[in-house]
Structures are given as C-alpha cells and as structure tokens.
C-alpha cells in the first residue's frame, strides 16, 4: 500500500512537471506580452528604447531555456517567482486564492452528492416509471446547460425579482461566515447541479447493474427491508464507478470555477488563472497550472485509495 502511494505520488509529480513544461512553452508561443497589455489601455508615448528597457526589467527579454531553468530551480526551492503583472509572489497569490476555490469545490461536491445520489438511486429503483423519466430529464438538463448561462440567468432573475444578488465584495469564511455563505451558496448550487448530472446518471446505471446481482436477490430473500438492501448492499458496491466519476470531474470542476468565479466576482484560483492567461502573466500562469495539476493528481489518488475502503477485496500492487 505504502509503495503504491509513493509510486503514485512520484508519477503525479512527473505529470505535474510535464504539465508545467507544457504550460511554460505554450504560453510563450502566444504573441503578446504583459508590458504591451499594461500600456494598451492608455497607450502613452513610449519609444522603442523605453519599451525595450521596461521589458528587460520585467525579464521578458531572456531566451526560453534560461527562463525555464531559472524557474525550475525556484520551484525546487519553493519559490514560484513573482507575477509579471502585480510583482507579488506567485505562491502567495495561490495561497490567497486557493482556499476559496477549495471551498467552492467542497460545497459544489456536497450539492452534487446531495442531488445525484438520492435521484440516481430513486431513478434506478423506479426504473422506467414517469418519475424515472422526469429525473433523467433533470439530469440531461444539468448536462446541457452550461454553467455560465445558468449563472448569468440566476443573477439576472434574482436582481430583477428580489433586487438581491450574492454580495460582490467577497468575505472569507473566517472573516464573515454568513456573508461568505451568501456569496458561495448560489455558485455552489450551480457548479453542483452541473456536476450532479454525470454522477446521477452513473449512480443510476451502476445501481441498475448491482440490483440485478444474485446477492441482492439473496438479501431480499432473507427478508431485509428494501431500504437496507439498497443502502447497505447495493449502494456501497455501486459506489466505485460513481467515486471514479467524481474524481474525473475534479478536472472539469477547475474549468467551471474559471467561469463561475468571474461571473460571481469571487477571487479564487480559477479567476486568477484566467486573468494570468489574458494578461500574459506567464510566471503566475505556470505556477497556477502546476498547483492545479498537483491537485487533480491528488484528488485522483484519494479516489483510487477509496476503492479499498469501499471494497476490501481490492488490493494495491
């Protein structure tokens, strides 16, 4: 087990490194740089000499390989460099924005689970009934409506009807828990709803498969009540594919946060990453991508390890 975890972690680190290398290269292929973007808004008079001097001060004039090696050396020392746009340390920016994104992820996951599990189970148990069709329709809806559309419509409807939207001046959970939850609930509901669609469909099909198994028939024959058969015997066994899907959705979730955090004016890692990309803030962007890659690797590792808890027959080798 320990050897398995160590091996997975090493693979994870290698994956993250390759992601970082890829990000480092790709963002530099795109034309435009942070300096041009900073001056573009007001475009004052700057001579080519002025531009060259400022660009050199920002470190934008160095060739690719020395830049990458210097950055990599920093990564091993725990220094991801300073943002080209703000001058602040990249790691500090990530540390500031990551808790919000994790909070949104946890809340989104809770919402998704609260929606998908009961509906998935119900849909499987009441297979091919009107209720099943209705619930599956809801799932299709969650899959079809993009998060950004749902978010904009939600904000519009709230502002037009009750003249209220989640407060835009963000407060952290520690600072002001009530305001924080007012700010996070709607985004979490939207992210959760979108995520729940896939999990719900997976729960339904996994449950359907398990419900046909001999041991379920045996459990029923023993006279166990339906609730116990489903919750104790069927659900736990149907859970492995569902958990796998939740793990895979971590990557999709990171994409969703970019949109959701922008629409709801939440200062999270997703928005930080989008802004870094738009501002050609390469240093911040590659730091963010590295952390996101590590997070996705970690979530998938946790998912893999949970298989053993769900089904003790599974062995790691």
């Amino acid at each position: 087990m320990t050897a398995y975890i160590v091996r997975r972690l090493l693979i994870g680190v290698l994956t993250a490194f390759l992601v970082a290398l890829f990000a480092f290269g790709v963002v530099r292929i795109v034309p435009g740089d942070a300096l041009m973007l900073q001056i573009a808004e007001t475009s004052p008079r700057l001579t080519p000499a002025d531009l060259a001097r400022i660009r050199a001060e920002m470190g934008l004039d160095k060739p690719f390989v020395p830049q990458f090696l210097s950055w990599l050396g920093g990564v091993f020392r725990g220094d991801l460099g300073n943002s080209l746009w703000t001058g602040r340390p990249v790691l500090k920016e990530i540390a500031r924005t990551l808790p919000l994104t994790l909070e949104l992820a946890v809340l989104g996951l809770v919402v998704a689970t609260l929606i998908s599990l009961p509906i998935g189970i119900l849909s499987a148990v009441k297979r091919n009934t009107l209720l099943d069709y209705a619930l599956r329709f809801v799932a299709i809806l969650g899959l079809s409506i993009p998060e950004f559309a749902l978010a904009i419509v939600a904000i519009l409807v709230l502002s037009l009807t009750v003249h209220w939207i989640p407060p835009t001046d963000y407060r952290s959970l520690v600072e002001d828990p009530l305001t924080n939850l007012q700010q996070m609930l709607l985004p979490a509901l939207i992210v959760g709803f979108a995520m729940s669609a896939v999990s719900m469909r997976m729960t339904r099909s996994a449950m359907l498969e398990v419900l046909r198994e001999d041991y379920i028939r045996t459990a029923r024959a023993k006279g166990l009540p339906d609730r116990l058969v489903i919750m104790r015997h069927a659900l736990k066994n149907a859970f492995i594919p569902v958990i796998t899907i939740i793990g895979l959705q971590a990557r999709r979730f990171m994409g969703a946060t970019v949109i959701i955090e922008t629409i709801f004016a939440l200062p999270g890692l997703g928005r930080l990453t989008l802004d870094a990309l738009l501002n050609r803030d390469f240093v911040q962007l590659q730091g963010n991508l590295l952390v996101i890659a590590l997070l996705v690797v970690l979530v998938n590792l946790v998912v893999d390890l949970s298989y053993g808890w769900l089904n003790p027959r599974i062995r790691y080798g």
């Binding site: 904000i155 519009l156 502002s159 209220w164 939207i165 835009t168 922008t262 004016a265």
Partner: peptide, 13 residues
C-alpha cells in the same frame, strides 16, 4: 466585478 451583467445586477441590488 469583471462581468458586465453582474455589474448591472449589483447596481440594481
């Protein structure tokens, strides 16, 4: 507030 529709909603609210 980066998103214009949210700016308008925040004004309304």
């Amino acid at each position: 507030i980066p998103e214009e529709s949210t700016q308008v909603a925040a004004f309304r609210a």
